[in-house]
Simulated scan of single mutants.
Amino acid sequence: MLSESAAATVRATLPAVGASLAEITERFYAGMFAARPELLRDLFNRGNQAAGTQRQALAGSIAAFATHLLEHPDRRPDAMLSRIAHKHASLGIAPEQYELVHEHLFAAIAEVLGEAVTPEVAAAWDEVYWLMANALTAIEKRLYEESAETGWRRWEVVERVAETADVATFRLRPVDGGQVADFRAGQYVSVRVELADGARQIRQYSLSGAPGSTIRQISVKRVPGDATGPDGEVSNHLHARVRAGDVLELSAPYGDLVLDDRDGRPLLLASAGIGVTPMVAMLAQLAGTGHPAPVTVVHGDRSPADHALRVDHTAYAEKLPDASAHFWYEQDAAPGTRTGLVDLTDVAVPGGTRAYLCGPLPFMRAVRAQLIEKGVAPADIHYEVFGPDLWLTRA
C-alpha cells in the first residue's frame, strides 16, 4: 500500500509520467544496455527490443500498476504480477537485478522529466517501484521453491516433426537421464540457444504435448521479419539448424494460464494460429480424464494446411464425451465449412463456461467481447499472449 503522501504525489504526477513513459522506457533500455551489453545479448529478446514491443509492455505495466495502487489501495493486481513473475522465473531473474533496473529506470525518469522530478516526486515513484519489485521478487521466490527443476537443463531432441510449412514440433528428453517433472496444461518453457554471433538468446514456447509424459514437446512457428520487426532469431535458428540428436537448454515449466477442470464446469478453448499449442495440451489433459462437461473448441487459421497440430486438435476433441469443434479458415476451406475470421454468433456457449484464449491480441479481444455478450463472466475468461503482454497498453 502506498503511503498517503506518496499516493497524493503519484496521483498528481501520473498524467505527466504516463505521457512520458514511452520516452522513459526507451532511454531506460538504452542506458542499461550501454552499461551492461551482455543483458541484450544473453537475456533480453533482441527482436522485441528492435520492434519496441518490450518498451510498450514495460510502460503499460508501470502505468497499470500505479493506477491500480491509486484506485484499489487495499489490493494488489495479483493477476498482472503473476503473469510477469512467471515470465521472469522462466528467465532465471534474480532479486539483485531489480536494483540494476531501478538504477537505470530512475536515471531515465530524471533525464526525461528534468526539474519536475523533485525529491518528493522521486520518493513517491520510488515507493511505486519497490512495491512492484518486492511483490514480484516474493512471487518469483515462491515459484523457484515450488519448482521440481532449477536452473537450465540440457535436453536432447529425440524427434522433429514438420507440422506445417512453418511449424515444427520438437520432442525432447533430458540428457542427464533424470526424472521429468510434470507440468500443468497451458504452461511454457524457456528455450536458450547460442546463435551464430555468440549471443545466447531465450524464447518461451508452450508445451504442446500431454501432461504426464516423460518427453517434453514444443511446437515452434518460424517467425519471418516484416515492417514491425526482424526475423525471429530463435525460431529461425531452431527451424534451420536443430535436428534429432541436437541438444537444447530448457527452463522448468512456468506460466499462469493453466487449465482448471477440477470443478467439472463447461470449458471453451479458443485459439488462432500458433496459439493452438497450449490448447492442444489442455485438450490432451481433458481427453485423458474424460472431462464430462461440455467442451467447446474454437480455432481460426489462414488455411487447413496452416493449422498446426490439426490432427491432434481434432482427435482429442473427438475423445471427449461432450465436445464440439469449430474451425474457421480464411482460405482453402472445404465446401460447407466455416470461412473467414472466428465468429461465435451461432456457436452455443453453455452457462457457467470458463474460457481460455490464445492467439494474436486482436483475435483475443474480439473473442472476449463475443463471449461477454453471450453471458460469460469476465473473470472466467483467461488469456495467454506470446511475447510482451500489450493487452494493458491499448484501450
Score class of each variant (00 low, 15 high):
191 V>F: 06
197 D>I: 04
33 F>M: 02
120 E>Q: 08
135 A>W: 13
374 K>Y: 07
18 G>R: 01
148 A>R: 11
343 D>V: 02
333 A>Y: 09
6 A>K: 13
264 G>W: 15
222 R>L: 15
73 P>C: 03
85 A>F: 06
209 G>L: 05
238 L>D: 03
186 G>P: 02
377 A>C: 03
178 G>A: 13
132 M>K: 06
183 F>P: 09
21 L>Y: 07
203 R>T: 11
311 V>D: 13
145 E>H: 11
263 D>N: 13
327 F>S: 10
49 Q>P: 04
198 G>R: 09
234 V>R: 04
342 V>W: 04
359 G>E: 00
291 H>I: 07
130 W>T: 04
245 G>L: 09
286 L>M: 10
66 A>I: 03
173 R>K: 14
5 S>P: 07
353 T>N: 03
188 Y>E: 00
110 A>K: 15
91 L>Y: 15
226 D>P: 15
136 L>R: 06
225 G>A: 03
224 P>M: 00
313 H>K: 01
112 V>A: 09
156 E>T: 10
63 A>L: 11
194 E>T: 15
199 A>V: 07
119 P>Q: 00
394 R>H: 15
283 L>V: 02
259 L>T: 01
325 A>W: 10
29 Y>T: 00
39 L>C: 13
327 F>A: 10
344 L>S: 05
92 G>R: 12
117 V>W: 07
230 P>A: 00
165 A>G: 11
395 A>F: 14
308 A>I: 04
23 E>L: 12
240 A>Q: 14
215 I>R: 14
65 F>N: 00
6 A>Q: 08
283 L>S: 02
212 G>H: 15
117 V>Q: 05
68 H>I: 01
304 P>F: 06
300 G>L: 03
365 R>L: 09
393 T>W: 08
274 I>H: 06
189 V>I: 05
204 Q>R: 10
376 V>K: 08
197 D>M: 07
224 P>K: 08
278 P>K: 05
237 H>Y: 15
51 A>R: 14
298 V>S: 05
172 L>Q: 02
119 P>D: 00
320 L>C: 01
304 P>E: 05
261 D>Q: 11
289 T>D: 02
262 R>E: 09
78 D>M: 11
267 L>G: 01
229 G>I: 06
334 A>H: 11
355 A>P: 14
84 I>S: 08
127 E>G: 05
48 N>T: 11
107 A>S: 12
72 H>N: 14
107 A>F: 07
280 V>Q: 08
223 V>Q: 15
231 D>M: 13
271 S>V: 04
235 S>K: 09
110 A>M: 08
18 G>M: 04
376 V>L: 01
149 E>V: 03
98 Y>R: 05
306 D>L: 12
289 T>H: 13
75 R>P: 07
153 R>G: 03
260 D>V: 10
55 R>N: 05
36 R>V: 14
267 L>W: 06
33 F>A: 01
328 W>E: 02
353 T>C: 08
68 H>R: 06
319 K>D: 12
